[in-house]
Amino acid sequence: PEDEKKAKEALKRANGDEDKAKEILRKLGVDPDRAEELLRRLR
């Protein structure tokens, strides 16, 4: 869904750096736990 698209985009923008991607997602208003879960799934 929408969050998943955001997560993929964030990872791309962060050049695969998960911590940076998490930060980006947090700024986009995605719940930190949700962000973590999404990134884990994309790994």
Rank of each mutant, 00 (worst) to 15 (best):
P1W: 15
P1F: 15
P1R: 13
P1H: 13
P1M: 14
P1A: 14
P1D: 14
P1Q: 14
P1E: 15
E2N: 11
E2W: 10
E2S: 12
E2G: 11
E2V: 09
D3E: 12
D3L: 13
D3H: 06
E4D: 08
E4G: 06
E4S: 08
E4M: 15
E4H: 10
E4K: 08
E4Y: 15
E4A: 09
E4Q: 09
E4F: 15
E4I: 15
K5A: 13
K5I: 12
K5C: 06
K5W: 12
K5S: 09
K5R: 13
K5M: 13
K5Y: 11
K5H: 12
K5P: 06
K6S: 09
K6R: 11
K6E: 08
K6N: 09
K6P: 03
K6M: 15
K6F: 11
K6C: 09
K6T: 11
K6I: 14
K6W: 15
A7L: 08
A7Y: 05
A7E: 02
A7G: 04
A7Q: 02
A7D: 01
A7K: 01
K8W: 10
K8Q: 09
K8H: 09
K8G: 06
K8L: 14
K8C: 08
K8I: 14
K8S: 08
K8V: 12
K8F: 09
K8A: 10
E9V: 07
E9F: 03
E9P: 01
E9H: 08
E9A: 09
E9K: 06
E9L: 06
E9Y: 05
E9M: 05
E9G: 07
A10K: 01
A10H: 02
A10W: 00
A10D: 01
A10M: 02
A10Q: 01
A10G: 01
L11G: 01
L11D: 01
L11K: 03
L11R: 02
L11I: 08
L11W: 07
L11Q: 02
L11H: 03
L11N: 02
L11T: 02
L11F: 06
L11A: 02
L11S: 02
L11V: 05
K12L: 12
K12H: 12
K12Q: 12
K12I: 13
K12V: 12
K12F: 08
K12T: 10
K12P: 01
K12Y: 08
R13C: 10
R13E: 15
R13V: 12
R13M: 15
R13Y: 10
R13H: 11
R13P: 01
R13S: 14
R13W: 12
R13G: 07
R13T: 13
A14Y: 04
A14T: 07
A14E: 03
A14Q: 02
A14K: 01
A14G: 04
A14R: 01
A14P: 00
A14V: 07
A14L: 02
A14W: 03
A14D: 01
A14S: 09
A14F: 05
A14I: 02
A14N: 02
N15Y: 09
N15K: 11
N15D: 11
N15L: 11
N15F: 13
N15T: 04
N15W: 09
N15A: 09
N15P: 01
N15I: 05
G16W: 09
G16E: 03
G16Y: 11
G16V: 01
G16K: 03
G16A: 03
G16R: 04
G16C: 11
G16S: 03
G16I: 02
D17Y: 05
D17A: 04
D17Q: 06
D17E: 05
D17L: 05
D17I: 05
D17T: 02
D17N: 12
D17C: 07
D17K: 05
E18K: 11
E18G: 07
E18D: 06
E18I: 15
E18R: 11
E18S: 08
E18Q: 09
E18V: 14
E18N: 08
D19P: 06
D19Q: 13
D19E: 15
D19F: 11
D19M: 13
D19G: 13
D19L: 13
D19V: 15
K20N: 06
K20S: 07
K20F: 10
K20E: 10
K20I: 14
K20M: 13
A21S: 02
A21Y: 06
A21W: 03
A21T: 03
A21H: 00
A21Q: 02
K22A: 08
K22T: 06
K22F: 11
K22M: 13
K22R: 12
K22Y: 12
K22W: 07
K22Q: 06
K22E: 03
K22V: 08
K22S: 06
E23M: 05
E23N: 06
E23V: 07
E23K: 07
E23W: 02
E23Q: 08
E23L: 05
E23H: 06
E23F: 01
E23G: 06
I24E: 08
I24N: 03
I24W: 05
I24M: 08
I24F: 07
I24A: 05
I24Q: 04
I24C: 05
I24R: 03
I24D: 05
I24P: 00
L25M: 07
L25S: 00
L25D: 00
L25W: 00
L25Q: 00
L25H: 00
L25T: 00
L25P: 00
L25N: 00
L25G: 00
L25A: 01
L25F: 01
R26F: 06
R26S: 12
R26Y: 07
R26Q: 14
R26C: 06
R26L: 15
R26G: 10
R26M: 15
K27Q: 14
K27G: 13
K27S: 13
K27C: 09
K27P: 01
K27M: 14
L28H: 06
L28D: 08
L28K: 05
L28R: 04
L28V: 06
L28Y: 05
L28T: 06
G29L: 04
G29F: 00
G29S: 02
G29E: 02
G29W: 00
G29N: 05
G29I: 03
G29M: 02
G29Q: 03
G29H: 03
G29K: 02
G29V: 01
V30L: 10
V30K: 01
V30Q: 02
V30G: 01
V30M: 15
V30N: 01
V30E: 03
V30I: 15
V30T: 04
V30P: 00
V30S: 01
V30F: 15
D31A: 12
D31I: 04
D31R: 06
D31F: 05
D31V: 05
D31Y: 05
P32L: 12
P32K: 12
P32R: 09
P32N: 10
P32F: 08
P32C: 08
P32V: 09
P32Q: 10
P32I: 11
P32Y: 10
D33H: 11
D33S: 12
D33R: 12
D33L: 12
D33F: 10
D33P: 05
D33K: 14
D33N: 10
D33V: 12
D33E: 14
R34W: 15
R34E: 09
R34C: 09
R34D: 10
R34A: 11
R34M: 11
R34G: 04
R34L: 13
A35I: 15
A35P: 00
A35T: 04
A35E: 01
A35D: 01
A35L: 08
A35K: 00
A35S: 06
E36T: 05
E36W: 03
E36L: 06
E36C: 06
E36Y: 03
E36P: 00
E36S: 06
E36H: 04
E36D: 12
E36G: 04
E36A: 07
E36N: 08
E37K: 05
E37V: 05
E37G: 04
E37F: 02
E37S: 04
E37I: 06
E37N: 05
E37H: 05
E37P: 01
L38V: 06
L38I: 12
L38F: 04
L38G: 01
L38P: 00
L38R: 00
L39S: 00
L39I: 15
L39V: 08
L39C: 03
L39F: 04
L39W: 00
L39P: 00
L39N: 01
L39H: 00
L39Y: 01
L39T: 01
R40W: 03
R40S: 13
R40Y: 03
R40L: 10
R40K: 14
R40F: 03
R41L: 10
R41K: 14
R41V: 06
R41N: 14
R41W: 09
R41D: 15
R41Y: 08
R41T: 07
L42W: 03
L42V: 08
L42M: 08
L42C: 03
L42S: 04
L42A: 07
L42G: 03
L42R: 02
L42K: 02
L42T: 04
R43A: 13
R43P: 05
R43E: 13
R43M: 14
R43N: 11
R43G: 13
R43S: 13
R43H: 11
R43V: 15
